[in-house]
Design a binder for these strands. Structure first.
Length: 520
RNA sequence: CCCGGGGUGGAGCAGUGGUAGCUCGCCAGGCUCAUAACCUGGAGGUCGUAGGUUCAAAUCCUGCCCCCGGAACCA
């Protein structure tokens, strides 16, 4: 039986376009999705937008647009960006969709019937200008004023419904104990456990006086508020309340990819909600790090922020360079579990060093040497095994695999370069096939055969990371195995050479077009 | 004040007990098949700090200093 793998990313607020930080999360999730598919899992990869928020309806109002129409347009724009980055999502949910509404209503009703929701009151700082409550922190930081309207908020109480989160304290702690891998990476674990051990307050899950949002079925004056709505996208998208068969096929999720800032909601509130509804809890939650922007001129490091004016849009990089360049930079330079930096200078350095100078150049060298000296065919290589230059091959592939599965992408990529790309360049330097071809053509052929074999391995390992370039390189030769079916195990085994190695890439004057043209 | 994370050569990062490692940058050589790419060698770190445990600590323990983040719409 095929193993299933259900993974999700956080849903985004569509009140502004995605930036490189949000893209970082999607790329990390995408590598996992592609890797699992490659390894034979039945994969379902969900992404989406979080639309039932006051900010979104306000933003649409500001623009004089219908809220739903605005959301649909933004959803289209988001997906356009994700597709440009080759994010291989299987489904994209908008929380304004009927399927999500239906699921939320069923879910909240079930939890209400089970006695985990009660009516109470919410007291806080209310700003008339915003027609919304402000957090204590917001008010405090603005010197006792509403940060948007710069006027004093008033103390106001309104009725609302609470989810009895505090009742789940013991069950949550027991759950963390039994499932030590639930919270990833390990370093986030303490934070959540400490938090849950401390004061766990019941959460307000409704609003009143809003027309945009999901009505509470047992009291339609109210709409479902924030997290109680947003988190449910993970179940509503796969048919909770609307398609039991599909739901049972995929739930529970194998991993939720989220930003480290919302770890607590996914690791405390979400499992408690599921327990309340008597549903299984996800296997893991992965809280990835953040990307900070480094200013090349001043050297200062800042959070990505509109007000600082340092937002870099993914499309800017994709258009100037390529989606592969974008993916590689963030996957190699920013450790997925931890924080990383982006700067244009660093981007150019990494691109040139790893992609242009090492990998791309190696491919060019191989193709040119074979096409010029052997008329693109290494005759007599059919059915043979090339010379091995990586004695630890099986162990290396295993390490790469382990790191990919643990989402330590930067480590995995470093290993691939150190174990294959760099040694291959050294091997060429030692054997000098461009000289050898004049004195011992068969020996030189053997070196190039080895080079092709190394490229085959690199592309297979790189397939989840750089889906396009790895395919281009692979298809540059006549490998017997279809690209669609290659797996990591194939990288650890000798290639199957049914026919003599042949260069099948398109050539111009015996050369391939550079895969990664140098920057600068 | 409290909680969590972190402080490793110029920059960015690995490294949880046993000769301090990777990438970029820098200096000097080599090579010329290749995208002026590639290869070799070198300079550069008392691993925030003060103690402690140990035959042995970046790695474990304690104090202190500094940076980042910290519950309601912020990836």
């Amino acid at each position: 039986m095929t193993k299933k793998f259900y993974l999700t990313t956080a849903i985004d607020y569509p009140n502004s376009r995605p930036h490189i930080g949000t893209a970082f999360e999607k790329i990390g999730a995408d590598v996992q999705a592609r890797y699992r598919r490659q390894e034979g899992y039945a994969v379902h990869f969900l992404m989406g937008n979080d639309e039932n928020t006051v900010k979104v309806s306000r933003r649409a109002e500001e623009l004089g647009r219908d809220v739903k129409e605005y959301c649909d347009d933004m959803a289209r724009q988001f997906q356009e960006v994700w597709r440009a980055l080759d994010i291989s999502f299987d489904d994209f949910i908008q929380t304004s969709e009927p399927r999500h509404h239906a699921a939320c209503q069923k879910f909240i009703q079930k939890v209400f019937d089970a006695g985990h929701i009660y009516k109470g009151g919410y007291e806080g700082w209310y700003c008339d200008g915003c027609e919304a409550f402000k957090t204590d922190k917001e008010v405090k930081e603005a010197g006792g004023l509403c940060p948007a309207h710069l006027k004093a908020p008033i103390r106001r109480t309104e009725p609302c419904y609470y989810f009895a989160l505090s009742k789940f304290q013991d069950r949550l702690l027991a759950f963390y104990e039994e499932h030590p891998d639930f919270i990833q990476p390990e370093s986030r674990r303490n934070e959540v456990v400490t938090l849950v051990k401390g004061e766990l307050r019941d959460v307000n899950i409704t609003r009143t006086g809003e027309t945009w949002g999901i009505p509470v079925p047992f009291d339609p004056e109210f709409t479902i508020y924030v997290w109680f709505d947003a988190l449910l996208n993970y179940v509503s998208a796969i048919g909770y309340g609307t398609d039991d068969e599909k739901f049972n096929q995929w739930w529970p999720a194998d991993v939720h990819f989220i930003g480290k800032d919302i770890t607590r909601f996914h690791c405390a509130l979400w499992p408690a909600m599921l327990m309340a509804a008597e549903l299984p809890v996800p296997r893991t939650v992965f809280g990835h790090g953040f990307v900070y922007i480094k200013d090349d001129k001043t050297g200062t490091l800042d959070k990505i922020s509109k007000s600082l004016g340092n937002v870099v849009e993914p499309m800017e990089i994709v258009t100037k360079f390529s989606s592969e360049a974008f993916r590689y930079y963030f996957l190699r330079e920013c450790p997925f579990p931890g924080d990383g930096e982006f700067s244009w200078n660093r981007f150019a350095d990494v691109f040139n060093a790893d992609l242009a100078n090492k990998l791309g150049n190696l491919y060019s060298r191989g193709v040119t040497l074979i096409s010029k000296n052997y008329d693109s065919v290494l005759s007599g290589t059919a059915g043979r095994t090339p010379t091995e230059i990586e004695p630890e091959l099986v162990a290396i592939v295993k390490q790469v695999r382990t790191n990919v599965e643990a989402c330590h992408y930067s480590v995995a990529l470093e290993k691939i370069w150190l174990a294959f790309t760099v040694p291959m360049n050294q091997y060429l330097e030692k054997t000098e096939p461009w000289k050898l071809v004049k004195t011992d053509k068969d020996a030189a052929k053997e070196v190039l055969f080895t080079l092709v074999e190394q490229l085959r391995r690199i592309t297979i390992l790189l397939k989840p990371f750089l889906p396009r370039s790895s395919e281009t390189i692979y298809r540059g030769f006549n490998f017997a195995q279809p690209w669609e079916s290659v797996q990591y195990a194939d990288a650890a085994a000798a290639g199957k050479y049914a026919d003599d190695v042949r260069v099948t890439a398109a050539l111009e004057a015996g050369k391939v077009k550079p895969l990664f043209p140098r920057i600068g």
